[in-house]
């Protein structure tokens, strides 16, 4: 358990299979790729520049409007910032791809059906009464101070 091989990698390369004819898959992957492009640029990019870099990275032919949609969605989610650059907006990344996945997960979990029906959570909600019952059941075994967590794990 020491090495978290599954940890989202920052420098994740665009996948060659992005050309697969699956619109939903592309939408999710494209916003991740677009965010990577913004991150690596280190300066504000216009949708046109993002499109060029996406295509250079092998994302296949892309409509300008698709890129604009992706970028404005990232902006609406608070993951990218934008500023006026002539007639268009220029975008900068405020969060990395790893946070993007985390953000998307949290949104998925917020949809009421998903938490109960699809995703099996390790632990659900806890009422005050539940907490009391737990402390009674386990007593001294449970963390009681602010230093609740165990030692920081090797994965950190």
């Amino acid at each position: 358990m020491g090495d978290h091989a599954g940890r989202p990698a920052r420098g994740h390369r665009p996948d060659g299979e992005a050309a697969a004819p699956e619109p939903r898959r592309r939408a999710g992957e494209l916003s991740r790729l677009a965010l990577e492009v913004l991150e690596q640029a280190g300066r504000p990019l216009t949708p046109g520049e993002v499109r060029d870099q996406l295509q250079a990275a092998g994302a296949g032919p892309l409509a300008y409007t698709t890129v604009v949609t992706i970028l404005s969605r990232l902006h609406a989610q608070g993951i990218a910032e934008r500023s006026r650059a002539g007639r268009a907006y220029a975008y900068t990344a405020t969060a990395g791809p790893a946070q993007l996945v985390a953000h998307r997960m949290r949104r998925l979990l917020d949809a009421e059906d998903n938490r109960d029906g699809v995703l099996a959570s390790f632990v659900g909600g806890l009422s005050v009464r539940d907490e009391r019952a737990l402390r009674e059941l386990l007593g001294p075994d449970l963390p009681s101070g602010p230093q609740a967590g165990g030692p920081p794990g090797p994965g950190r």
């Binding site: 599954g6 992957e29 997960m105 949290r106 699809v118 995703l119």
Partner: peptide
Amino acid sequence: DAASVARCLPRGGQLAVLDDPAPDAYA
């Protein structure tokens, strides 16, 4: 919905660690 979000997770390996400070875990 879950499947489309799952595609954003890193491939390979059954475990995905999210860079999220809020403690949570699910299958």
